[in-house]
Nucleic acid binder design. Structure first.
Length: 428
RNA sequence: GUGCCUAUGGUUUAAUGGUAGAACGGUGGGUUGUGGUCCCGCUAGCCUGGGUUCGAUUCCCAGUAGGCACCCCA
């Protein structure tokens, strides 16, 4: 047989050893628990889709060079999914008209993007996707936002460790109108939006330069600067009163006030710099930030995308959703020390060592009995001295050890030793 | 795709132009029926290719892999 030379996983992928698996499972279990608590329904779509649905709408990179593509036997071009939204919209558009509205769906699935791997970003990654279809009401926005917050809170993070930043594409369009940027060519307009997106990262002079190059006048730039520097809606209304009648302004205001009434006020703020890259967002947009200095990044984000369904030739339906990733969630937990000393495998396990080979059959019968009674039993396979058995149980973190050797067999008994207290219980 | 940094047992690492030492882990024993501490033995390593050199794990170049930033994205 040919030797396989590398023990390495393919680039950008990760083996989940049982230790690693336990962490991922913890994250997924928290996510699933919260979604079910919200009455959301779980679904799954195939791991591949026709490549064209990503080319159409996923953006230049995700739907382009980062797409992992191959041909099936019929020569059809398929891609491993790089995101869930096109798939779920495809699925929902099949059943939408016949379904009672609204639909509240979630899924936990893996994805592939041919990216350069780095911290918080792998080629294979997992995401939770949560969406509400069929309601354009503020109540749907608010439910999505509280769900996003509760998902993070489920990990019991320390106070002040994260926050949700809100903005609206409509408000943004309003500002661009005010600044006259809407009249620019789409390329120049995109550059303006990109500049807003990078506002915090760029220097004042770089911002000025980019906006001038895009074709904006000084007065227009002043308006954008004013917009980007406001800290809350009150200030925005004062500085740019023209925006008070903007639909996005009302959306944000309504959502913020509801979240505040529901007890989330410390976690939410208006943030003009939240733009988000995907083109299909057309209403409320938001991002959840990790506030840890070592991991200061957007954990996840989402928004409203009412116009996406039309790529399947369907009538549009309202939709809002978001998608946290496993890697960013893990980094959040790690940076705040929420993984330290945590017993993820809370399942209580029994160890049943084979203390005497002559008692193999009797041991197996006892193990059957214990398993039938609902115990999780790890059975020893080779004869083992009792001291070695206890040492093994210790290393594996087993809760109990069943002691069944010659002495016990003679008395028709066995002992269950609690590894924490050291106490033994005699069972006949 | 671009730039910078890094690469030594399974893991974390030390030293060195004359091929490497430790800790943790794994394993066996001290202890033939009672673990976590302790003591001893064993196990296992210089990313790949080329160059300089008498000799390269060490210096140089390239590749590969990883990290960070950009780009992009969530």
């Amino acid at each position: 047989m040919a030797k396989i030379l590398s023990k390495q996983e393919p680039k950008g992928t990760l083996d989940w050893t049982p230790e690693e698996f336990a962490i991922r499972k913890y994250i997924f279990d928290c996510w699933r628990r919260v979604c079910l608590r919200y009455g959301f329904e779980e679904y799954l779509t195939p791991i591949v889709e026709s490549a064209e649905i990503y080319r159409a709408k996923s953006g230049e990179d995700v739907g382009g060079k980062e797409l992992v593509t191959f041909s099936d036997l019929g020569g059809r071009e398929l891609s491993i999914r790089p995101e869930m939204t096109p798939s779920v919209v495809r699925m929902v558009s099949k059943v939408y008209t016949a379904s009672p509205k609204p639909l509240k769906y979630f899924s936990i699935a893996n994805f592939m993007r041919n990216e350069k791997p780095q911290r918080g970003r792998n080629r294979e990654f997992w995401q939770l996707n949560c969406d509400i279809f069929g309601s354009a009401k503020a109540s749907a926005d608010i439910e999505i936002l509280t769900l996003a917050l509760d998902l993070v809170l489920e990990f019991k993070p320390p106070k002040n460790s994260f926050s949700l930043h809100l903005n609206s594409r409509q408000l943004l369009d309003g500002v661009l109108d005010l600044a006259g940027a809407s009249k620019l060519k789409s390329e120049a307009k995109a550059e303006v939006v990109r500049t807003l997106d990078k506002w915090q990262k760029l220097s004042a002079s770089a911002i000025q330069e980019r906006l001038l190059a895009a074709g904006l006048k000084e007065e227009a730039i002043a308006i954008l600067k004013k917009f980007m520097s406001v800290r809350d809606l009150l200030e925005l209304a004062k500085e740019l009163p023209e925006l008070k009648n903007n639909l996005g302004f009302a959306q944000i205001q309504e959502a913020m006030s509801a979240l505040s009434d529901l007890g989330y006020s410390a976690l939410v703020e208006f943030d003009p710099a939240v733009i988000r890259g995907f083109d299909y967002y057309d209403g409320l947009v938001f991002e959840v930030f990790d506030k840890h200095p070592d991991n200061n990044r957007a954990m996840f984000g989402g928004g409203r995308y009412n116009g996406l369904a039309e790529i399947f030739g369907e009538k549009n339906f309202p939709a809002i959703g978001f998608a946290p990733g496993d890697e960013t969630a893990r980094l959040f937990l790690e940076s705040w020390g929420m993984l330290k000393g945590k017993q993820f495998d809370a399942q209580e396990k029994y160890y049943f060592p084979l203390l005497n080979h002559d008692l193999y059959l009797e041991s197996q019968q006892l193990i059957q009995k214990l398993r039938a009674a609902g115990r999780n039993v790890f059975a020893g396979l080779e004869e083992q001295k009792i001291s070695k058995a206890l040492e093994f149980a210790n290393k594996k973190g087993f809760a109990k050890v069943v002691i069944f050797g010659e002495d016990e067999h003679k008395k028709h008994k066995y002992k269950i030793k609690d590894m924490k207290t050291g106490k033994e219980e005699v069972v006949s």
